[in-house]
């Protein structure tokens, strides 16, 4: 549905996008992650045709976006980061205007407008001027405008910007619903948000794809080589046992008598087995013994740190 190959974009001497490649099939929600200035928004602008790449190829819903830009844009619904709209227009007026620009037949316009008003819970404010609405509502107005023509490809740049927690939850479930028969790219810097919404992550840094896969796949490639032990014994009793086994550990008190150990070793599974056996033999109570789970934040930082990031 979206095929991007060897995409390059310079801004003067700055090489902002450096050979980005990915393919996203229909029905997949992909999270585009990256620090500020990584090239996320530039990549999205290249996909939507706002910017043209200096080299590479883009296919949107089977159409060559560089050879037939207007045709490929018919398949895209785009929510820009700033969720722009016209403050002097009413919500319904803005949607009516957008419906005349987007590929919607005149007889379907009213139905499309009513549908997105309901979908984005805007029916109550349909007659209000956009300039009088809160940031959250304006965000939903822009999202509604991107859905008007029922596009097969949805590109959302920071869609939960300015939303309160309830609205974020609603937006998340709306995006999940929308992805059933669409291809969706969501760019965000709110990592838990992305983790909950997206089945696949593409991490971009310095204009390159640094990692691409499901959160689980990425975690597997980025194991921390550490296991977590919670036991009831003083550190000066536990640490010699761990050291004798050939591991290094960091100790942290949790509550009365209980300590949390982070034990590092080359094989966490073997480390777990050996530590479990040794502590049991020493009659030390254990209440947790597991591999350390890499959170998305750690994963993100680890991907960025391990990549050789060239100067722009």
């Amino acid at each position: 549905m979206i095929e991007v190959s060897n995409l390059h974009r310079w801004f003067g001497s700055v090489h902002a996008v450096r050979g980005v490649d990915f393919t996203i099939p229909q029905g997949q929600i992909v999270g585009l992650l990256g620090p500020n200035g990584a090239g996320k928004t530039t990549t999205l602008r290249l996909l939507t045709g706002i910017l043209r790449p200096q080299s590479g190829s883009i296919r949107i819903a089977g159409t060559d976006a560089l050879a037939r830009p207007t045709a490929s844009r018919r398949a895209i619904g785009y929510l820009p980061e700033s969720a722009p709209s016209y403050p002097e227009m009413s919500v319904r007026g803005f949607l009516r205007y957008r419906s005349k620009i987007l590929p919607i037949s005149p007889r379907d316009r009213i139905m499309s407008i009513e549908k997105v008003l309901g979908l984005c819970r805007l029916s109550d404010v349909a007659r209000r001027r956009i300039g009088q609405l809160s940031k959250g509502y304006r965000q939903r107005v822009a999202l509604a405008a991107s859905l008007l023509h029922d596009p097969p490809v949805l590109i959302l740049d920071e869609p939960t910007n300015g939303l309160d927690p309830t609205q974020v939850r609603d937006a998340r479930s709306l995006i999940a619903d929308l992805a059933r028969n669409r291809t969706v790219i969501v760019s965000s810097h709110i990592l838990p948000e992305i983790e909950r919404t997206c089945g696949r992550l593409i991490i971009i840094g310095a204009g390159r794809v640094l990692a691409d896969g499901t959160p689980e796949e990425l975690r597997r490639t980025r194991t921390s080589n550490a296991c977590i032990v919670q036991c009831r014994a003083e550190p000066d009793r536990v640490l010699p046992i761990i050291t004798r086994l050939g591991y290094k550990a960091e100790v942290e008190p949790i509550e009365s008598g209980w300590f949390r150990l982070r034990v590092r070793g080359s094989d966490p599974a073997e480390a777990r087995a050996r530590i479990g056996a040794a502590l049991t033999e020493a009659s030390i109570a254990i209440r947790e013994l597991r591999d350390e789970v890499v959170g998305l934040e750690e994963l993100f930082v680890s991907v960025l740190e391990s990549a050789e990031v060239p100067e722009p």
Binding site: I50, T70, L102
Partner: peptide, 14 residues
């Protein structure tokens, strides 16, 4: 200034 040029530029219009 409003950012709506982004909307127009990403719409199927020349």
């Amino acid at each position: 200034r409003l950012g709506t040029l982004e909307l127009l530029s990403s719409s199927p219009v020349t």
